[in-house]
Design a protein around this nucleic acid. Structure first.
Lengths: 157, 157
DNA sequence: TATTGTTATACTCTATAACTATA
DNA sequence: TATAGTTATAGAGTATAACAATA
């Protein structure tokens, strides 16, 4: 007797099926499904701070590197400059940062975090960390650390 | 002297900055960036087989579970039924599967893989596996296995 | 009432191209 | 000629709602 799923299905879902396991054993597929878990969970948390995943990431960069240019934020985050405009607009509307002019190069607008922006980033980061711990609750602390370091090593390529 | 990036930046990027590391130390952020690496790499490979990530995943399910319904494929893949229609349409146009009627329940259309569909799935899987190994080339074999098992354990929650 | 497949719709995310002003 | 910021635009991905046929 094979182990079947609870829904009323046309076919059995025997555990250990070769081709089924092939998909479930792809790292990329598991990364994609895991990304959905984190994305949806973290998005909900960030909404409470008037942020979304991208604006949160951008704000973190501005807070960490006051005076950074939009182009540099885009480079660090791996997104297009054009897509960053609306994100910076929203952060500016929320009084999280200011666009300031630069004497040496009048093309760029240095991004300076406001005190409110700094505090928003810190509060959001606390909540995001808590949410991540909740999402990973069935991993031990060591396993969480291992997962993080392996993903970072992967990205270093 | 701090370590700076190569681009002409307004600000320094000292390694070890607290708030910058906070973002880079979020598991969710690393999952998101890793997902982009896999997604773009695998997508290119699948194009050579007339597939994309979603149609490949759906085809794998149909090959692994001949006779599966569209609703079940959607449930297993974690996507909406409505979004699956176009995917199944494209797989049917490529002669990878057939929609067949079911006597017991005339609402459902059991999905049966064609011989061409089975072979396409197998060939694509070989290439995807090779691509994943390339993407993870700076991880040892043990590390790749650990990463996979941790992601699977995370998703079991 | 609930489910399957389907269509229509809209919304988010994101990339591309082109423009301007500066360098 | 190259870069910064910006705008417009289009495409992919995906969720929602509603519908007809069937259970």
């Amino acid at each position: 007797m094979s182990t079947t799923r609870k829904t009323n299905s046309l076919v059995d879902f025997p555990s250990g099926n070769v081709l089924d396991r092939s998909l479930e054993d792809l790292v990329g597929y598991n990364v994609k499904r895991s990304n959905i878990l984190f994305q949806s969970g973290v998005r909900k948390v960030l909404e409470g701070h008037g942020l979304n995943p991208r604006s949160f990431a951008a704000l973190c960069q501005v807070v960490a590197h006051p005076g950074i240019s939009q182009s540099d934020v885009a480079r660090v985050l791996g997104i297009e400059r054009s897509g960053l405009v609306a994100i910076i607009d929203s952060l500016q509307e929320n009084n999280c940062l200011e666009r300031t002019t630069v004497q040496d190069d009048r093309r760029v607008q240095a991004l300076k975090p406001t005190q409110e922006g700094i505090e928003t980033a810190k509060r959001a980061m606390v909540d995001v960390n808590a949410k991540e711990n909740q999402i990973m609750e069935n991993l031990t602390s060591d396993e969480q650390i291992t997962l993080l370091s392996l993903l970072q090593k992967l990205r270093d390529a």
